[in-house]
């Protein structure tokens, strides 16, 4: 299908940089997730790719063709908006056929493609309804049908699941992944939900403050985060980040040794440990239990360290659940990450 390339793309809104020097390649047929909190520049990047905003500097390529100056309609893309952006005065069928009518497709082919798209998202029965008569999930599927009917080179999706309830979101997430894998269309998917990113993306590009932090496969990012931000953002809960010290290669939280580093340095650091790599044990650093969240399969024990930092320990369901206010000691059972205290960059 198609490749997408951002080449040093920046966007400045009224003197405020929204996106800084983004260089990113999306491979043919790949689903790349742009992930980050509000204001991180992910939607700006998508809108620049769609042609809905003009880049301040840099260039965007689709299949090695510079599309930076092209109108949205000339980029051969389809977009699913957060609000679905359906045409409220048109029926479902009219909504779906709108892009094809604009492309002046012959009537027979148009009808065939619309029927196929409607069948793909199981909306054939509702073709004559208007968007106002549909549920949120059905509207979302109309938006998807309107995108796939064009057979575009690239799909752009801007938080398409954020208006759905939790159960429907999970189901639609799987549907979108299945559809994308089946159609094999290169897709750029924007979300702030790291669970969506982890479960849907071939690769994830994590962004913060308009700057790309790291890009890679979901598990690579989870296991080898480039900095404290990526470590803290990915995972549910995110990685525990606690002020610590590196003393000639030994990692300390307070005066408690929690691991060793490959870097034999001495300085203030941020120590990162995943919740599943911690346990409440007879030895380790001291903390007070704030609350134990029983989630069914496991328990998140939320604790506070002596320096008032939050640490979450993931325990299996059958383990003894400590009481709120109880003093405990916590020890790492797995990998301990070390980040620079100031830049947040990973040291080891």
């Amino acid at each position: 299908m198609s490749q997408v390339r951002f080449a040093a793309v920046s966007k400045i809104f009224g003197g405020t940089p929204a996106l800084t020097d983004l260089s990113l390649d999306v491979a043919d047929g790949e689903l790349l997730v742009l992930l980050g909190p509000s204001g991180c520049g992910k939607t700006t990047a998508l809108r620049l790719l769609a042609g809905l905003e003009e880049v301040s500097s840099g260039a965007i390529y689709i299949d090695d063709v510079d599309v930076t100056a092209l109108e949205p309609k000339d980029r051969d893309i389809a977009m699913v908006f957060q609000s679905y952006a359906l045409y409220p005065h048109m029926t479902v069928r009219k909504n779906v056929e709108f892009p094809l009518k604009n492309a002046k497709l012959p009537a027979a082919e148009l009808a065939a493609r619309v029927n196929e798209a409607l069948a793909t998202v199981s909306l054939t029965e509702l073709a004559d309804r208007k968007p106002g008569q549909l549920s949120g999930g059905q509207r979302q599927r109309v938006a998807l049908a309107r995108a796939i009917v064009r057979r575009p080179r690239v799909f752009l999706m801007d938080e398409p699941l954020s208006n759905l309830d939790a159960t429907l979101r999970q189901q639609t997430r799987a549907d979108i992944v299945a559809l994308q894998r089946r159609l094999g269309v290169t897709t750029v998917y924007v979300t702030h939900d790291q669970v969506e990113a982890m479960t849907m993306g071939h690769r994830i590009a994590v962004m913060k403050g308009g700057v790309l932090q790291q890009v890679g496969k979901p598990l690579d990012l989870y296991n080898e985060p480039a900095n404290a931000f990526v470590a803290g953002f990915l995972g549910s809960p995110g990685m525990n980040l606690v002020a610590g010290e590196l003393r000639q290669g030994q990692i300390f939280i307070g005066d408690d040794l929690v691991g060793t580093s490959s870097v034999s340095d001495t300085r203030d650091v941020t120590v990162g440990i995943r919740a599943e790599s911690l346990e409440i044990s007879p030895t380790g650093f001291a903390a007070t239990v704030l609350v134990a969240e029983e989630l069914g399969a496991d328990v998140h024990v939320v604790c506070e360290t002596a320096t008032h930092e939050r640490v979450v320990v993931r325990q299996p369901q059958h383990a003894t659940v400590p009481q709120s206010g109880q003093s405990v000691t916590i020890a790492p059972t797995g990998k301990v990450y070390v980040f620079d205290r100031h830049s947040g960059e990973r040291i080891s």
């Binding site: 769609a50 809905l52 109108e71 977009m79 908006f81 952006a85 045409y87 604009n102 064009r150």
Partner: peptide, 12 residues
């Protein structure tokens, strides 16, 4: 968003 959608959908 509706106006933008129509631009992406190729409407003049």
């Amino acid at each position: 968003e509706i106006m933008e959608a129509s631009r992406v959908d190729g409407a003049t």
